[in-house]
Design a binder for these strands. Structure first.
Lengths: 345, 345
DNA sequence: AATTAGCACTCTCGATTTGAGAGTGCTATT
DNA sequence: AATAGCACTCTCAAATCGAGAGTGCTAATT
């Protein structure tokens, strides 16, 4: 890759900044005016020609201004990434909202999604924290009507799964409680994948419930389930690049098909460690539907215990300067919250 | 209101049917061809003029075909409403999907939303079943780390609320369990609004927890909370009437602002009994953002115990013939499921 | 009395044209 | 190396146009 001169660098950044704000191709004339450059438009044009040659800019038509290419955006992001901090005032507002919200995971996720969407004017997405390797913590069995039983499973890391079981015959709450106590003793702290090596309990009810627990656990970890929270879907509809609604529809469809979304998030963050950001620009050749979009993604949580993913989707010319620090800050906040609520051993 | 002749009635229905399919104004010529009418276009025109006079039809421009007015749609719906049954094959497919899904409320809601959206090609919305008057059933307290405690509240009707509490000081699981047992005895079966008249427990921990339960209960019933499930948001974007994305954006925004949506659902179903359908056409003057839309809404559940609302939003020219029976059928299905899982007393 | 054929009239919609303006690239000049 | 000047290109919005779709009315028909 050819080196950029200092002037080319700043020029490139200015062009991108302008285009992000105006949504229109940047022209030599306008740039000089807007940023009070001490150069003539002609000079700018020469530089722009060079940058175009190098693949950072593109001309929509023979004689229009320049628009950044994906490569251009990548350069832009890499430049502003390190020194992007959210203004303290905003940090406080956000952190305040979290601390006065009701203290449960569901609320936090919803809140985080809302904040991300609002701050970035994009579509936000968060997966609830999920343990890579679940360890059993506690089971509760609550008799409901007749043969129906409400089962609540709690895992180390704070994950909770509840389900209604239908037993073969009615059972008293007392017997259920005893079963729960025995199973709790049996399973406490055990990693989920060790369940199959357990001795079969003597009591037939214990045995049945254990089977059901096992089923539930398998389904939960297999489907890599856990809710996905999104917000701000309509934000993106007002962007001019989605005027022909078809483009927007295809992008938003990804957000409705939870399994695809999950896959997207998973694949893009496999090599990202907690706190590290990932910026996907233009679908990175992988996601046809996101050709016009960018995503800022981060992982949060406590490594090895429970982690989740959060991100923002926007048009390729989204305001990275706002989105990136916001995503980073919220990821940090959530990591702290997860850390505070880890269900001990 | 002036009476319609038999011919006018059938004609009106045909015009609406045509317009729903083609999304274009219906013209006398086309109608004759399409439905093999034994009349000349001129006659049709006379009748259309009459229907226009009466307010059932409208002309987009002086010399264009006719488009149904909201009044027209209302007539259409009132006519087809009673004898609209879902084909048995479809009924089976749907019911099958429910019965092989995992038996918990969350899954059912998601599934129902997906089915509704898919069948109707509209946006679906469901509120989880909610008791008008909650009665306490059971509390579980599970020690987590240090001062953190996971509290699970179960209500008669099957509603569950979980929350993480932070106590003033660490407490052992044993003490928590004892507290839970005592509180369960104290509160069992009690209607939530009677809580304030209770004698204060002697144990300070009991007292603290009781306060927290009370807080949670209040918040839950006040905010009329409970999740809202939606699906199919992108379906509606492909409809031609939402080509200028602004119209679509405003309508979809309602679906993102959960509190407005809740209000909309609540207000439109106050007088609807379980199983009864409600069709809002063009926002009914109340909802400016839904001027171009219609909603088919139903309540489901068990009256007096736990009820929820479900509905489908689509363009005003949505396929009522498909949507109405689907909504009705799914409402019935969910009512049965709720009935089966009622947490007994 | 209801229906229909015929016709003039209206309005939309897409295609085409046009001109202004924005912007570039190149060349000659400073 | 930077820039002024200029010819050239391409877009975009507005204006024009004609065909086609559809109506409403009147007069004829059943």
């Amino acid at each position: 890759m050819i080196e950029l001169t200092e002037r080319q660098k700043t020029l490139l950044l200015l062009i991108i900044r302008d285009h992000i704000e105006s949504a229109k191709p940047a022209s030599s004339q306008k740039l000089v005016e807007k940023f009070h450059l001490d150069l003539s438009p002609a000079t700018i044009r020469n530089e722009m020609a060079a940058l175009t040659e190098m693949g950072y800019l593109r001309q929509p038509h023979t004689s229009a201004g320049r628009v950044p290419t994906e490569e251009g955006y990548r350069y832009f992001v890499s430049q502003m990434m390190p020194n992007a901090e959210l203004p303290e005032a905003v940090q406080h507002t956000i952190s305040h909202q979290f601390h006065q919200s009701r203290a449960d995971m569901d609320q936090w996720m919803t809140l985080a999604a809302s904040i991300l969407a609002h701050q970035s004017q994009g579509v936000s997405v968060i997966t609830a924290p999920h343990a890579e390797q679940s360890r059993f913590k506690h089971v509760e069995l609550i008799s409901t009507q007749g043969r129906q039983v409400l089962m609540v499973l709690v895992f180390v890391g704070g994950e909770v799964s509840q389900q209604i079981l239908t037993l073969a015959e009615p059972v008293t709450q007392e017997r259920l409680s005893q079963t729960a106590t025995r199973l709790n003793a049996l399973l406490a702290g055990l990693a989920v994948d060790k369940f199959s090596s357990l001795a079969t309990p003597s009591d037939p009810l214990d045995q049945d419930i254990l089977t059901l627990i096992l089923q539930d656990v398998r389904r939960t970890s297999e489907s890599n389930s856990g809710e996905i929270y999104t917000d701000g879907l309509t934000n993106v509809l007002s962007e001019p690049e989605f005027a022909e609604s078809d483009e927007a529809r295809r992008a938003l469809k990804i957000f409705e098909e939870r399994s695809t979304l999950r896959d997207l998030l998973a694949r893009s963050t496999t090599n990202t460690n907690i706190g590290g950001l990932q910026v996907l620009i233009g679908g990175e050749g992988e996601w046809e539907e996101l050709r016009q979009c960018s995503m800022v993604i981060a992982r949060y949580g406590v490594s090895g215990i429970a982690t989740g993913t959060l991100g923002v989707l926007g048009p390729m010319r989204m305001s990275y300067t706002k989105t990136i620090p916001t995503v980073r800050y919220v990821a940090g906040l959530l990591s702290n919250l997860v850390n505070d609520t880890i269900v001990g051993e």
